[in-house]
């Protein structure tokens, strides 16, 4: 991406961060204020990490599947992950490691189901993957609801899990695990950035990619596996947050960003900014907090319509 665009992005981002952390705090006493800021910084880190990961994974999936309407939510990966997480939280109360393993396992399962569904639908590949993702999403959302009812959970928990929220952080307060997961997210992200040249060639044409020396199948599944891992982590922390991974990469493409590396790095900043704004709105627009997924979906609908109008004939 060009330096100037990046600079504008960064400025907006920092302004947002400042407002986000310091909003409506002037009336509090100093001690309370510091305490609130600490909590907000914690939330802030979670918000921007998930914004970055969800958006960049959306960008990568759109390249992998050559479909501008995909992200981990649409393909059903998040749904599977959430089901796995809640399943394990019912049977292994509170063990974060096991929960995340379950979440990963079911994300992987849902991706496999989606892929095998779509390969059996004799339609345009762009459409068939969307349909199968939709079906898998419905399947796992229903399972999540059944599971929540059986385990006699509070119904608001279900709402926040299905629509995503940074208020109801589901996990225990084990800081060490937090940090280690954060590190794995950074490592896998760096790995994907290094894979951006393969992504570029694969986005051109798969036959050209293989005759140029790219192992298309291996790269496809490896990169998909990494995205599934990242998504399952984020889902375990904040629930299902959709659409941010669709909007930002498409806006970037509209602005003339075409190479994978630029798309991914632009997605980091754009995704983090958008999700900060959405979280801000979800927190302060009413006297109570609404799930961030609701804000994002409402905001995305016109965009999604516009993308469909431009990409599907």
């Amino acid at each position: 991406m060009k330096g100037k665009k990046l600079l504008i992005f960064l400025t907006i981002f920092f302004l947002l961060s400042f407002i986000y952390i310091d909003f409506k705090l002037s009336n509090f006493e100093k001690d309370v204020r510091n305490e609130i800021i600490k909590m907000r910084i914690f939330r802030y880190i979670l918000v921007i990490t998930s914004g970055m990961v969800l958006t960049s994974s959306g960008a990568v999936m759109q390249i992998l599947f050559k479909n501008p309407l995909l992200d981990s939510y649409v393909l059903g990966i998040s749904g599977g992950g959430l089901f796995g997480f809640i399943l394990s939280s019912v049977y292994f109360k509170g063990n974060l490691l096991i929960s995340i393993f379950f979440s990963f396992f079911f994300s992987l399962l849902s991706a496999l189901i989606s892929l095998s569904f779509s390969s059996n639908i004799k339609s345009d590949r762009k459409v068939s993957i969307l349909i199968s993702g939709l079906l898998v999403n419905i399947l796992f959302s229903s399972l999540v609801i059944i599971l929540s009812i059986f385990s006699k959970r509070d119904i608001t928990f279900l709402f926040y899990a299905l629509m995503g929220s940074f208020n109801h952080i589901f996990i225990s307060k084990n800081l060490f695990l937090y940090i280690s997961f954060f590190v794995t997210i950074i490592l896998t992200t760096v790995f994907i950035i290094f894979k951006s040249k393969e992504l570029d060639i694969m986005s051109i044409d798969e036959d050209i990619a293989s005759t140029s020396g790219v192992n298309v199948k291996k790269n496809f599944f490896f990169i998909l596996l990494i995205i599934i891992y990242q998504t399952s982590l984020i889902v375990s922390f904040v629930g299902m947050v959709g659409f941010v991974g669709i909007i930002i990469p498409n806006i970037l493409r509209m602005a003339g960003v075409v190479k994978s590396k630029d798309l991914i790095s632009g997605s980091f900043l754009g995704g983090a900014s958008l999700i900060l704004v959405a979280d801000f709105i979800s927190k302060y627009s009413f006297s109570f907090e609404i799930p961030i997924g609701v804000v994002l979906s409402l905001f995305s609908l016109p965009f999604i319509f516009w993308i469909v109008k431009n990409n599907f004939e």
Partner: peptide, 8 residues
């Protein structure tokens, strides 16, 4: 060649 996305 089916280009799905633009490329330089």
């Amino acid at each position: 060649i089916y280009l799905h996305y633009d490329f330089p």
